[in-house]
């Protein structure tokens, strides 16, 4: 499988690339240059042909929505919303079958301790990153799934090791692509085009 991973500069994404490279062909991308042993493509995730070329030939995209060092709130909001939109629009145009969006379980942190919070509960973002930016990226991705142009799996990461996250991502990629599965009824076990899974523990 050909897999594109965004936010290459982020330590978790680098670890994820190392893990998945055992089984798949990996392409990393970031909005600034990153030294890596894997294939790397510098991309601003803009509205231009380069974003289509970035996603062309990919079977899956792992979109991590992480900020660059010292990015202000405006830049982080721009990356989480506009850049996510550009990436997913290009992915849909290029026929990418599935997207895994790495979000955060901090979205559920304001529920009282001891509650058995599930994926179907309403997220409770705050007014600043990272919860606001992750939440907005989720919302943007949902509309692509709603229209059936992409299958999106949201992994909300809590307190979990890189190994745990890597295994969870691997399992998400191993599931049938939601876009194909959506043609089956839910009673037959068909996957939703937009699904959320909580990984690890809530802080």
């Amino acid at each position: 499988m050909q897999i594109l991973i965004t936010s290459a500069r982020h330590e978790r994404c680098a670890a994820l690339a190392d893990y998945l490279a055992q089984f798949h062909e990996i392409r990393l991308t970031e909005r600034a240059h990153v030294e890596t042993a894997h294939e790397f493509v510098l991309s601003a995730l803009g509205h231009d042909r380069s974003t289509n070329l970035l996603t062309r030939g990919m079977d899956a995209i792992i979109h991590a929505v992480e900020p660059l060092p010292d990015e202000d709130v405006s830049a982080q909001l721009d990356a989480a919303t506009r850049c996510t939109y550009n990436l997913l629009m290009a992915a849909a145009q290029e026929g990418v079958s599935q997207v895994v969006l790495l979000s955060t379980l901090e979205l559920m942190a304001d529920y009282p301790a001891g509650y058995r919070v599930q994926e179907t509960w309403r997220p409770l973002p705050r007014t600043q990153p990272p919860t606001l930016t992750k939440h907005l990226a989720e919302q943007v991705s949902r509309e692509f799934a709603r229209e059936g142009s992409l299958g999106i799996k949201i992994l909300r990461l809590g307190e979990a090791s890189n190994d745990t996250v890597a295994v969870a991502v691997g399992e998400a990629l191993a599931e049938p692509a939601s876009l194909a599965a959506k043609h089956r009824s839910r009673e037959e076990g068909g996957a939703e085009a937009w699904s959320i899974t909580h990984i690890g523990e809530r802080a």
Binding site: H47, V73, S74, L77, D78, T81, R82, Y85
Partner: peptide, 14 residues
Amino acid sequence: RQTAWDVSTRGCYN
């Protein structure tokens, strides 16, 4: 795309 997100989305944040 750039200005639509700048104004309609980040404009609301601002």
